[in-house]
Design a protein around this nucleic acid. Structure first.
Lengths: 336, 336
DNA sequence: CATCAGAAGTTATACGAATAACCAATGAGT
DNA sequence: ACTCATTGGTTATTCGTATAACTTCTGATG
């Protein structure tokens, strides 16, 4: 900057003021032009660290993921966060800890020493977790999970509403016997499993239907269980005409079961999935009607909470899971 | 740091020296202890910006991806880069540009103003690309692609060797009629398509076999083409006993074709894929034998090149694609 | 004519750490 | 007694920017 000042024949302060005062017309047009020319000629670029040193806070937001980058869905989460940050000219300083608490603490420490404007603490899957202590020292948001202690604001998908919407989609198509293959037991406490089931029940009740436990199965989220439990449901005495699979992998298993039974989707049985897994859901035949975890929107929202002025509270913000309509749902077959 | 110095009853310089001189025993044990106690008591954390300001280079590496985070495979690339960076105590300052050259330039500019130690320029898929001019100003590496101008060093998968290894795997199992369903035409110039085909030819020739063009098809990389061309090959007069599908999605299509023909894998036809797509290859039945793009290793290597002392040249470093053995390959059936 | 307002800059300082250069005290060697 | 090395520190300066506070000049005004 001193070089620029010398080249333009002014003082360093003048350069700084010309460059930063948005429109404060304190200088003559001539001087401003000389400064800008010198900047261009010398290829001057401001030193961000000197700026931060003076101003106390950096144009960076820390992003700590327990392994977000490697899980196929959730890359979108970091993408959303980054997009939103960049809209305010900020960059993401990111780390995947792989769940290593020590790495987590160390990298958080480094981030803080870089005076990040805030920290997004993102989890690979929706759960209740303990945040590292050092987070208390900065503005922070828990993403795709919830702070168990309830101190840090959180952003997570609305599983209940998602389960409700998925089930409603089938009920509205006219189904009255709607099965569910869940991804975990309720005792697991997994918000996705508990919430989607709760939504399933709520939708049935609202439609005046009882929850028939013979139509509900609890697997482990893999396609093997999807296959196994869909098979059980469809070969039972009084099979469902539609199945809500609480994740797409389970739905894939269900597809295979339906195929092995020489039935067809959606003619004989309608299927709704959950997750909109990019490498799976669009490629099944027929395309899987499913619900999307709003990763991009969640990432954006988390950064937004960091950026906003209002003092944060420990509130959990739940975000809608949009329906992705494809071709695995239709009306139930008329009974013979 | 002044506060710490005051609390410990020493000068700021002493604190700095005690904290940084690894073992330089210039101070009494007593003083050092007082300093460390004060640091703990006050929860002092060094200001990274002040340090960078003095030293000229930051403990950060820029990572620019054209949309790495959202593509399901390549999250691993950023993971590898970050891992390696952290081993040297560096963090990644990352941006996904979504291919927007303007955003790319702007974010690169910001990164440079943060005095990053280097920049990794990562592409979503392997190709030849033009790097932004500003990259010339820093140490940089092109990742998962190659600098067309040949100035910036590049790290990319060894497609030829991959295609060679895939084909060899089938030849070694005893197959002599090995088909290939490619992901693109050769005219596309796509290194993955061109290289894997070249490797396929090389392996055949080395085994003393001619390349039989009636066994080769060029699709668009989707499962529809995988289905269509596998079907063509298998229903031809003299079908192959094994097919090398140049990507896993194509292999999935081939699986469906085989299934529709009431044949079995690997009994009637062996299949080898490419990509080891995490949400697909392990879940096919039988599990797909395939090759992995070494994303983590590539990410690591790119950062390593940035970190190393030697002056870089524009060399392209090709990395091996490891075989992921599952159950889709066996000996050919004896002819009746 | 004295005064005052505004325009157009400049000077000086602070941010936090690293380090070269300096200083004071002690004890050993001659 | 004098020199000199060693130990254990301190002082002063630098990195690059932002900005509060000051200066100087030019017209305009009462």
């Amino acid at each position: 900057m001193h070089d620029v000042a010398a080249a333009a024949g002014v003082s360093q302060a003048t350069v700084s003021l010309v460059l930063n005062s948005a429109s404060g017309s304190r200088f003559s047009e001539d001087t401003r032009k000389r400064v800008r020319d010198a900047v261009d000629r010398l290829g001057y670029r401001t030193n961000a660290h000197a700026k931060v040193l003076r101003e106390g806070v950096a144009g960076m937001i820390g992003f700590i993921g327990d392994s977000v980058a490697t899980t196929p869905f959730a890359g979108a989460i970091i993408e959303g966060a980054q997009q939103r940050a960049w809209e305010d000219g900020l960059l993401l300083l990111s780390v995947n800890t792989g769940g290593d608490r020590q790495l987590e603490a160390a990298s958080l420490d480094t981030m803080l020493s870089y005076k990040v404007a805030g920290v997004v603490y993102a989890a690979m899957y929706h759960r209740r977790l303990e945040v590292p202590e050092a987070l208390a020292g900065v503005r922070s948001v828990v993403l795709n999970s919830q702070d168990r202690a309830g101190r840090v604001p959180s952003v997570a998908p609305d599983e209940v509403k998602g389960g409700y919407a998925a089930t409603s989609r089938l009920l509205e198509a006219g189904h009255t016997r709607v099965g569910m293959v869940n991804i975990e037991t309720l005792e697991s406490g997994l918000p996705a499993a508990v919430g989607r089931y709760e939504g399933y029940c709520a939708a049935l009740e609202e439609a005046g239907l009882d929850v028939d436990l013979s139509l509900v199965r609890f697997g482990k989220g893999g396609e093997e269980d999807g296959y196994k439990y869909a098979m059980e449901l469809l070969t039972s005495g009084n099979p469902p005409t539609a199945i809500f699979c609480a994740n797409d992998r389970g739905a894939w298993g269900a597809y295979q079961a339906v195929s092995d039974l020489r039935l067809s989707i959606p003619g004989d049985v309608s299927i709704v999935g959950f997750d909109n897994q990019a490498t799976l859901a669009p490629f099944l035949r027929p395309g899987l009607t499913t619900f999307e975890l709003p990763f991009v929107a969640m990432g954006r929202r988390a950064v937004e909470l960091i950026l906003q002025d209002a003092e944060p509270d420990g509130r959990v913000e739940l975000m809608d899971c949009p329906l992705i309509e494809r071709n695995s749902v239709t009306h139930p077959k008329e009974m013979p």
